[in-house]
Design a protein around this nucleic acid. Structure first.
Lengths: 367, 367
DNA sequence: TTGTATGCGTTATCAT
DNA sequence: ATGATAACGCATACAA
């Protein structure tokens, strides 16, 4: 395979290290990574002093601390996490297990998790289960061998199968939903309040016949967001006969399908309140495929505010999850658990905000 | 905070373990995880025999192997990865470092990586740098402390900053692009061939004036895909004067912006060949916002075939990256490196396929 | 303030 | 075929 010439120019332009300068091998020998003993030898102290200089700097004389720091710089010493964790009986890594990395909600949560962890000296590692219990078991092994000090769970159900109960789980916290069977604290968003904001917007535009397009009944979010929907309609005295509830699986395709199902009924709603953005996006695609215009013919709301929501035409009116904040709080809770032992609170619900864009308008009577 | 009643029903329906059955503590004591010594005691053999029974079963008598296996089952023993790695000097984890987990290309690559790794007894952990060198350094520490046996890199540039050269890096392989300054093998897609397929499709529809909307010149993919574009036009004898090249940053917003830039020129192309799907999606949004119809007024092609591409209206004609295969090959290459020491090949380029959807049609003369 | 010595759980070497 | 034991790198109790 030919290598295009341009790539070489590119390499030269990107690399700030001159070609003729031999890369420094981090001083000292190139053999194996420096150990605490190497540092001790160079600093002319004992390994205990080195360890102390690193972890309890105040318990060591200024002069020696200086020597140690120099020796560390010279050797490029990094403490071997394996040895350290073995000795301590715990690691400084947090494992984050998610059913699906590709979920548009995931990555910004992760940012919050990571920032908080990092600022407390912890690292974050990600595992994903693809909703596969077998795969979950792998991570359980990982945990059992003390490779992680704590666990963040992105699913409402323990991904490890049922026989393996929480007995051996390290301190854990859930994100979005409580973890069933776990007695595990969690942080999420107030789904009911969020859904209420969406339905209230629709009602204020004059809609009465509003369909709720849900995902699966096995998801707690379904129930809670639907609760908000019902509460809003109740407050507006909308009779049951005007309420339409559909189930799906929360995917774009599922939203598309909902359109087909609804058009087989005799009466159509004037607005759709979707359990999440994916469903709303699919719904809008389905509507558009049938020649309808949103928001002229139908209004649509989502939930989550995934990145794609703002790029739709029309852009999607939705409920924003404070994702970074959720991540931050979840990690903070876990770290608290890690030091205290017991959590201050078992449930943290953040406030979701309404994001008004262009997918909602006044209702339009149908033919 | 009220807990909606429905959640309890939910929990009951999802949990197969009866409430009154006390969760079994994995038999034996609940204290700390079982060690190899616990197993040895119960099996009435030495720890050496236990270790052998696990790792070299053929070197141990059938009868004793049986006893050991039983003891393992009883204790729920899992070998402590910390101790094992410390002793062995290497771990059984592969670290995957990506600049952005949210990249729609990432998750399916990961599936390929994981499956291959798992089938060879390795686990996969994910780190993401957010394009932040500081963060990259954290992972370098992770590597230096032997917490990972190998490294998969998702960026063309070493994310660790320049002074820290490859000196101490474990066996590594790159994905998508060669890793500059590394001498690191990689697996990607044949960008030139892919781009050629796209431009040839456009040409075959009758387009002559085709714009190439790139991302950043610092990306190798830009250069290679543009090379395919140029080659196609050369072969069709399209003069230079009909070629339009734009740069951007590869985001949806960037594609949108490209539309604005182009409409400030006096002559417009009849087709847009975009360096990736994100750009193409943004472009189509921009076109649509100006009242144009794709493919009637303009044709558009992308590159990557991200999930969203098939959900656009019109759906996007693009070049599919064999992502799962790329992941599989990359991991296979790494594992080979891990055992052999030296790679069989230093560059693996997979074949990209044209995916014909609805964003390309014959050109239409403009006003 | 600093040094010595022990053990964390494994695997591998050497005996037996 | 099996067992005793050293060593991996580190943190800390205890001694000095």
């Amino acid at each position: 395979m030919d290598f295009p010439r341009t790539s070489f120019d590119l390499q030269a332009s990107l690399c700030s290290v001159p070609r003729n300068e031999t890369p420094r091998q981090n001083a000292v020998s190139n053999s194996s990574p420096a150990t605490i003993e190497d540092v001790a030898r160079i600093a002319e102290v004992s390994i205990a002093t080195v360890s102390r200089a690193i972890h309890m700097p105040e318990k060591v004389a200024n002069s020696t601390r200086l020597k140690v720091n120099q020796a560390i710089a010279i050797t490029g010493y990094t403490t071997n996490a394996m040895a350290r964790s073995l000795r301590l009986g715990r690691s400084n890594m947090i494992l984050v297990v998610a059913p699906d990395i590709g979920d548009p909600n995931f990555s910004s949560i992760l940012v919050g998790l990571e920032n908080e962890a990092r600022s407390h000296g912890y690292g974050v590692l990600i595992g994903h289960t693809q909703n596969d219990a077998q795969r979950g078991l792998e991570y359980l092994k990982f945990l059992n061998s003390n490779q992680a000090a704590g666990l963040i769970l992105f699913t409402g159900i323990l991904p490890f199968g049922h026989q393996t109960m929480t007995a051996r789980l390290p301190p854990s916290v859930g994100v979005f939903e409580p973890v069933f069977n776990g007695g595990i604290p969690y942080v999420g968003v107030d789904d009911i309040e969020g859904a209420r904001k969406a339905v209230d917007l629709l009602l204020s535009e004059g809609h009465r016949k509003i369909a709720f397009i849900g995902d699966s009944k096995t998801r707690l979010a379904y129930h809670r967001r639907r609760l908000g929907y019902e509460a809003g309609l109740d407050a507006a005295n909308v009779p049951d006969s005007l309420r339409i509830i559909l189930e799906g699986d929360g995917t774009i395709e599922s939203g598309r399908l909902a359109v087909e199902q609804l058009f087989m009924r005799d009466t159509l709603p004037t607005a759709f309140m979707c359990v999440n953005d994916q469903t709303a996006i699919g719904l809008m695609i389905g509507l558009s495929a049938r020649g309808y215009n949103v928001p002229r013919d139908f209004s649509v709301t989502g939930f989550d505010d995934v990145p794609q929501a703002s790029f739709m035409t029309p852009s999607l009116t939705t409920i924003r999850q404070p994702r970074t904040a959720i991540g931050k709080h979840a990690m903070a809770l876990l770290l608290e658990l890690l030091s205290d032992g017991k959590p201050a609170e078992t449930e943290i619900l953040l406030r979701p905000d309404l994001v008004v864009r262009n997918s909602v308008g006044p209702p339009r009577p149908h033919k």
